[in-house]
């Protein structure tokens, strides 16, 4: 269970390009933060660095649990969800098979699965093949695992982009509930999120 993410003097280099350096912030339980910045500023790279995919050129990423510092690998494999531009759905499989795999893989219980189906209105698309879904439906399907298996840190990359107004509002409520239960959200966005957030501009 992650209670706080601490970023200290972080620098990320991609290829020969320095995206940003000297980045410091921390995100505590119950807080959400919007990452803004021009294209290519390094928002996605920051999220991927926190998820452990990119190795920072400099600086530290620390995860604090209720009883002190967590081992980064354990914190990541059980404590965070990452939802990027790509939803990781196989186009030739049934929506419910893909949702169930994503949810169970991240450790969802039956109750969690039922809750996500309800909250994201997944039953109407459950029997369709993924390739027949619209972009918004695919996004709902892939956000399902965030609800189905509770993990405290959500790393979101343009989470709302393909969603319609009704589902944006619905997802806003889910984000609020997540924060209220002690979760954290770090989201790269161009449009503001429908919840109150801290804000950080990358590569300004």
């Amino acid at each position: 269970m992650i209670r706080e993410v601490q970023i200290e003097n972080l620098a990320i280099v991609r290829g020969d390009r320095l995206l940003f350096e000297g980045l410091n912030f921390s995100l505590k339980a119950g807080q959400a933060m919007s990452l803004t910045g021009r294209n290519g500023a390094g928002k996605t790279s920051l999220l991927r660095a926190i998820a452990g995919f990119l190795r920072p050129a400099e600086g530290e990423i620390r995860f604090q649990g209720p009883h002190g510092l967590l081992e980064a690998e354990d914190a990541r494999s059980g404590g965070l969800h990452m939802a990027g531009h790509q939803d990781g759905l196989k186009s030739n499989r049934l929506a419910q098979d893909e949702f169930l795999f994503q949810a169970r893989w991240t450790g969802a219980t039956d109750a969690g699965v039922a809750k996500a189906r309800e909250a994201l209105d997944l039953d109407v698309i459950a029997d369709l093949e993924v390739r027949k879904l619209s972009a918004g439906q695919r996004r709902r399907l892939s956000l399902g695992r965030l609800i189905a298996s509770p993990r405290s840190l959500w790393l979101l990359d343009e989470p709302l982009a393909p969603l319609d107004a009704a589902h944006r509002a619905a997802f806003g409520l889910m984000m609020s509930a997540h924060l209220a239960s002690g979760g954290m959200i770090l989201a790269a966005v161009h449009d503001p999120l429908p919840i109150g957030t801290l804000s950080l501009e990358i590569g300004g």
């Binding site: 998820a51 452990g52 995919f53 690998e73 990541r76 494999s77 059980g78 965070l80 969800h81 990452m82 990027g84 531009h85 790509q86 939803d87 990781g88 759905l89 196989k90 994503q102 893989w105 991240t106 450790g107």
Partner: peptide
């Protein structure tokens, strides 16, 4: 390759097993 292209490999890397 398929998992890499559609982003599923990200999720596999964040799962319960290494």
């Amino acid at each position: 390759e398929r998992d890499y292209e559609d982003g599923a490999l990200d999720q596999l890397a964040l799962g319960p097993v290494p």
